[in-house]
């Protein structure tokens, strides 16, 4: 379980996050949704302590992530996997080396064991046989899959995905969403997915948090989001014509 409490962050006097709190439960895929530029990625970076908020705390199963130095955080960091917006694969390494990288740096595993683990992860994300390619040689959807494989290679307790389906076609998007959800269920991970894609919201949102201009305005799930919410969220959800027609006819 991850708890965030009263997180506030501003850049150059501009408030980007305003007193955001929430709970993300184990085994659930929780979504953070909102328009572009509302501070979703900044919230994620605060949770990962890449950006330190001015106020608030993030607790990982009760452990405060903002106390102590980097050495103290190593234990929690080992339990995290992150899929960044563009995949953030290391350009100079092959797909296989990318996935193996956390094992090389953070574990004492033998070569054979590492290879098996990487093969397992590659196969789990449906990319058997592509380990030898470079990141520049694979498609956007494949990059995200490799990113997911790298994120789960250490068997994380916490998985974070920043816009896992941005820049992908609708079909590939749904496949990536489903993959994240399956992995979450299978390994009982606490997963936080940042998205602005309504398809994901409707299909994988066990729990949804809506951010608007740095504030949390609403919380619910994929059923309650279609009902009565707040005006800002309705605007966000029903900007799609098909959805608004569907709603008028309900």
């Amino acid at each position: 379980m991850i708890e965030i409490k009263n997180i506030s962050k501003s850049f150059n006097d501009r408030m980007v996050l305003d007193n955001v709190s929430g709970v993300f439960k184990k085994g659930e895929t929780s979504l953070v949704i909102g328009a572009s530029g509302t501070g979703k990625s900044v919230l994620l970076k605060c949770m990962l302590d890449l950006v330190r908020p001015e106020a608030g705390t993030t607790l990982y199963d009760g452990r405060d992530f903002y106390v102590g130095d980097e050495e103290d955080k190593k234990d929690i960091r080992r339990e995290m996997g992150v899929l960044f917006q563009g995949g953030a694969l290391f350009d100079s390494k092959t797909v296989h080396e990318n996935i193996q990288f956390p094992l090389d740096m953070l574990t004492e595993m033998g070569e054979g064991e590492k290879k098996d683990r990487v093969e397992f992860c590659l196969q789990r994300v449906g990319l058997e046989g592509t380990g030898g390619r470079m990141p520049s040689e694979i498609s956007g959807g494949m990059k995200k899959r490799v990113g997911i494989a790298r994120a789960i290679v250490m068997n994380p307790k916490y998985l974070f995905c920043d816009e896992p389906n941005s820049g992908l076609d609708p079909l590939t998007s749904i496949k990536i969403d489903e993959l994240i959800k399956e992995i979450t269920d299978e390994f009982e991970i606490t997963t936080v997915v940042i998205t602005h894609d309504m398809n994901s919201v409707l299909s994988i949102g066990d729990k949804i948090m809506f951010l608007h201009k740095g504030k949390k305005l609403w919380e619910g799930n994929s059923q309650t989001i279609m009902g009565d919410t707040v005006p800002e969220l309705e605007e966000f959800v029903f900007c799609n014509k098909a959805l608004s027609l569907m709603r008028a006819g309900r």
């Binding site: 970076k45 890449l50 960091r77 953030a88």
Partner: peptide, 12 residues
């Protein structure tokens, strides 16, 4: 491209 962030979250 957030590759540096990716290193940092691994604790490197």
């Amino acid at each position: 491209t957030e590759q540096i962030d990716a290193l940092e979250v691994m604790g490197i």
